[in-house]
Design a protein around this nucleic acid. Structure first.
Lengths: 131, 131
DNA sequence: TTGGAGATGCGACATCTTTCGTATTTACTG
DNA sequence: CAGTAAATACGAAAGATGTCGCATCTCCAA
C-alpha cells in the first residue's frame, strides 16, 4: 500500500468521517454513507476514496469481510482530542492551557449550566489530585 | 481589490502571521519578516503576498504610510480564540464545552495554581453574570 | 461454474495553500 | 524633476484536498 505523507491531524472531511467511525466503532463505506447527512450527497466512490486515503495516512485500519472492507479507527477519540487541544494551546494560546479555559469561560455563548459543570469538574480535580 | 472566498478560519501560515500581528499591534512586511524565526527564510515577496491575501480575505486592513502598507488585525485575538474554541467544541467535542475542559484537565501538564486560577475566574463569572 | 451486482483501485480535475520571480509602481533625494 | 531604491501587483508552480467516473476485480446464487 502506498504511504501518504503523514500529517498528524485530520483534514475537515477526515474528521467528519472519523467522528462517525468513533461513534460506530467500525464500519464499511456503505455504513459511513448511511450515517452522513442525506443532503451531503457524496458519491460512493468519494467515500471509498476518502477511507482508502485515511488508511494510507494511518488513521484507520481495514479488515476484509466478504468483498467489503470494514474500517476501524486506529487512534481513540480521547487521544485525538487531547492531541488537538495540545496543538491548539501551542499555536493560539501561548502554550498555557489555563488561558484556553479562561477564554472558553469568558465566551458569551456559553450557558450557565455548562459553566457549573466545568466548575464541578475543576472542584473534583482539585480535591482529588491536590488534597 | 479582488475579494477572496471567505473561510472564516486562518490557514497555518496566516495564523503564524496573525500571531505576530497581534503581538505587534500593527506592522509592515519588513516588520513581519523581522519577527519571524530567522531559519524561516521566507522571501520578502512571499510575506507581502500572504499579507495581501489576508487583506483580501478580510483578516487584516492596511493603511499606506509613505510607500509602505501598514497592516493591522481586523479581529482581536480574544475573539478569534473564542471562535476557534467554539468551532473545535462543535466539531470534536459534541458541542459541549465542558467535555473539552474535562479532556484538558485530564492532561497531566496543568498545575494546581492554574486550576485554582481558573476556578476563581469561573466563580467570578458565575456570580457576576448569573446572579 | 459462471454472470452480474456490488465492491475496490486509480486517474483526473477543480480549488486552495504556500512560495517565489518578474514586472510595475512609487515617493524621496540629489 | 528625474533616477533609483524600495515597495506593491501579479502570475505561476508545486503540493494538498475533495470529488467523481470509469475500469477492474470478486464473491456468491442460480
Amino acid at each position: 500500500m502506498r504511504q501518504r505523507k503523514r500529517n498528524e491531524f485530520l483534514t475537515e472531511v477526515e474528521l467528519e468521517f472519523m467522528t462517525e467511525l468513533w461513534a460506530m466503532g467500525e464500519g464499511s463505506v456503505r455504513d459511513m454513507l448511511a450515517r452522513l447527512n442525506p443532503d451531503r450527497n457524496l458519491a460512493y466512490t468519494s467515500a471509498a476514496t476518502i477511507l482508502r486515503i485515511m488508511e494510507q495516512k494511518g488513521f484507520v485500519t481495514s479488515e476484509k469481510l466478504g468483498k467489503t472492507f470494514i474500517y476501524s479507527p486506529v487512534l481513540e477519540k480521547d487521544a485525538y482530542q487531547a492531541k488537538t487541544l495540545r496543538d491548539l494551546s501551542n499555536k493560539l494560546f501561548d502554550g498555557t492551557p489555563a488561558s484556553m479555559v479562561a477564554r472558553l469561560v469568558d465566551d458569551d455563548g456559553i450557558s450557565e449550566d455548562a459553566l457549573k459543570e466545568i466548575q464541578a469538574l475543576l472542584q473534583r480535580r482539585l480535591t482529588d489530585d491536590f488534597p
